[in-house]
Design a protein around this nucleic acid. Structure first.
Lengths: 186, 186
DNA sequence: GTCTATATCGGGATAGAC
DNA sequence: GTCTATCCCGATATAGAC
């Protein structure tokens, strides 16, 4: 699933490069020529693997949506307790270790307002994310508690940017974010 | 400064509409034709007031950067105490009441990765924002504390999105965010 | 599976009249 | 201060050869 058999799987290599450029320069600003150039192929080659630019980003997003929906299925069956929320945060963080570009895709959809108006699947993902955030506080929580719960997830996403200048490894950054997130959902 | 003499000041009306569309659909995706249409003028008319699309967004950003720099000048002269941080958060929140589109511009720069590569002034703003976030925790703080301090500011920015479905007024939302932010920088 | 060549479109920007 | 008309470019996407 997230193996990247770096030899022949051009399709996966396209996704890799596209995601990197989309997150770096934005979806709209990234041209297919740029992607093709970096791969050492031509634009037309991309169209053999994907029928449009949209489809490239769609496949990326659908893979990550599946992850969110798995997490949602799990949490929906659990009691709405602090213990559940803490366990959720741990599972979410673990996912960041496994799927190699979960975080990047999250940044992509957070930072590209244009995705979602046209691109199917993005709205569903944003919806799932909102639902998960709502579940990170007790059912009858005050707005303050609601916000803190949501900030638990946001902390994890933001840590890589906010702690960038702090000379930590990715693991250390994630560990710190995990501490903060666990506290926020508690 | 943020008056909008709604009669004749076309320049301000262009900024208004542009900001709204930029934040809604993204900077790249918004065309000058769209802006002009909504104002009931033509593209060429925009070029009388601004020499380029970039200049429109630049003026927006420069006004908000000035605000951040004022806040920075103030906090730099204060002791790095919890009291200072709390007062900073209060001043920041107050600014959201005054300047009518401070928040929108913040969302704009957060969510458009493409701004900043080319557009002068954005990097300076991002830098100021990072510096301010760093000052929201003690000088020798752990990564955890650093992250929590930064989340104080982020809480304010995120509240409008995160608490959207909660049927609160903007004031109530901001008040809740303020509570959480004050706690986070403490 | 990748190439060259091309069709087509929409965007930013300018010239010059009113 | 706003208009019409136009230029120019880069982007997505397709056709068809190899």
């Amino acid at each position: 699933m997230s193996e990247a058999p770096s030899g022949t799987d051009t399709r996966a290599r396209i996704q890799d490069v596209a995601l990197e450029l989309f997150t770096e320069h934005g979806y709209e600003k990234t041209s297919l020529r740029e992607i093709a150039d970096r791969l050492g192929v031509t634009k037309a080659a991309l169209y053999y693997h994907f029928k449009s630019k949209e489809e490239i980003v769609q496949t990326l997003i659908e893979e990550r949506t599946a992850v969110l929906e798995d997490l949602w299925s799990w949490i929906a069956t659990q009691p709405r307790s602090a213990g559940t929320r803490r366990e959720f945060i741990r599972r979410y963080a673990a996912e960041l270790h496994r799927g190699r570009y979960h975080m990047q895709v999250m940044h992509l959809i957070e930072r590209n307002p244009t995705l979602g108006q046209n691109i199917s699947g993005v709205e569903r993902m944003r919806g799932r994310l909102a639902e998960l955030m709502a579940l990170l506080s007790p059912p009858d929580a005050s707005p303050q508690r609601r916000l803190k719960g949501s900030l638990g997830l946001i902390a994890i996403h933001a840590s890589s940017v906010v702690l960038r200048d702090l000379d930590l490894t990715d693991e250390e950054r994630l560990a710190a974010a995990l501490d903060v997130a666990l506290e926020l959902v508690d």
